[in-house]
């Protein structure tokens, strides 16, 4: 670990002054001790004991550098004091004077590593492997140190730069060093089971929006839709909601190729319609996986459970001005970034 390397370095510097007995002081966590006391003394308190949160095993054990004993450093006879007059010990890192040097150690070791591998060829950021770095909160809990956001982001810059090294030339030590800052679960780790078309030709898709959840069964047909046993017009009074419900089919020009059976529960009318959007899109992807890019352009395969979206301008379309297309981020009716979505047939 980096900070250990650093403390070792300091210790080596001190050792050069003289052999010292290595006394290690184990720092235990103050908060944990305090909360333990508190829970014992306050018998009427209803708050739960929060020690478990802080003593979780995600935190690292930390050993501070031992203090330099100048009296012993020179080997007796008051030589140490004399030496001090001629020698000024400058620690390699400013964290020597801080209470908790872990972050600085991490940062220094990463920059040192980057300096070493800086000449290796790199690839553009967009082509670099996708990595989910630890959030600042996760890092703070791991190190038990109040790391400032700006400093953490500086460290992230270094990490991203390291991540851009050409994968074929990536040194193992860099891989090992980056491992410490990655989340436990990386994107792409969890792969959903591929959908199947059952013996009756149905494909199932599940969608949620706000508090609504929908299941859609898609079979090949000629554009009929039954939602909870009712026709689209009976179930959704608003034309916009009807269009939302079958938007995935409409955006890919498949409305006359499939029949939809939808079951939708919870939430309001619009939420149900937009939950169906997602469900139908997912069911359609089972039938035709190649439609994924088209559906991405049509914005119907991204789950959005949030009820609120920052206001942004509405996009109107000359051909059907009353229809507002979903936004780029999710299937809400607002569009971010203010572009127009052009849906083209993949075929």
């Amino acid at each position: 670990m980096a900070h250990r390397e650093f403390s070792r370095g300091v210790r080596r510097a001190v050792d050069s002054l003289g052999n010292l007995p290595r006394s290690q002081c184990e720092r235990t966590i103050r908060i944990a001790r305090r909360s333990f006391h508190g829970s014992a003394s306050r018998c009427v308190s209803t708050t739960t004991v929060r020690s478990a949160e802080f003593t979780s095993d995600t935190q690292e054990k930390f050993t501070a550098a031992p203090p330099i004993d100048f009296g012993k450093a020179s080997g007796g006879k008051g030589g140490g004091k004399r030496l001090l007059q001629t020698l000024r010990v400058v620690p390699a890192s400013p964290s020597y004077f801080s209470a908790k040097p872990t972050f600085t150690d991490d940062y220094i070791s990463l920059t040192a590593l980057l300096r070493r591998v800086a000449t290796l060829p790199i690839i553009p950021t967009s082509e670099a492997p996708k990595v989910a770095w630890k959030t600042i909160d996760q890092y703070r809990i791991m190190t038990n140190e109040p790391v400032k956001t700006q400093r953490f982001h500086k460290m992230l810059h270094v990490l991203r730069r390291l991540n851009c090294i050409h994968p074929t030339l990536m040194p193992p030590e860099v891989m090992q060093a980056m491992q410490r800052y990655k989340k436990d679960v990386q994107p792409g780790d969890i792969k959903p089971a591929p959908g199947v078309i059952d013996e009756w030709g149905r494909a199932k898709g599940v969608g949620r929006r706000k508090t609504s959840s929908a299941v859609a069964w898609l079979v090949e047909g000629e554009g009929e839709a039954l939602i909870n046993g009712k026709s689209l017009a009976q179930f959704f009074g608003r034309l916009h909601d009807r269009e939302s419900a079958v938007w995935a089919l409409k955006a890919t020009h498949r409305l006359d190729k499939y029949n939809v059976f939808g079951l939708v529960t919870g939430g309001g009318v619009t939420g149900q319609a937009e939950a169906l959007t997602l469900a139908v899109a997912k069911a359609l992807l089972v039938h035709e996986p190649a439609l994924k890019p088209a559906l991405r352009r049509g914005e119907s395969v991204t789950a959005n459970l949030l009820p609120f979206h920052p206001p942004s301008r509405l996009v109107s379309f000359p051909s059907e001005p009353h229809v507002r297309r979903p936004c780029f981020i999710c299937s809400c009716r607002l569009t971010r970034g203010g572009g127009r979505i052009v849906v083209t047939s993949p075929a």
Partner: peptide
């Protein structure tokens, strides 16, 4: 395509 779309949105030709 237009006819089919409107037919579907009208609840199967209502």
């Amino acid at each position: 395509g237009f006819v089919t779309e409107k037919w579907s949105l009208a609840g199967m030709g209502n």
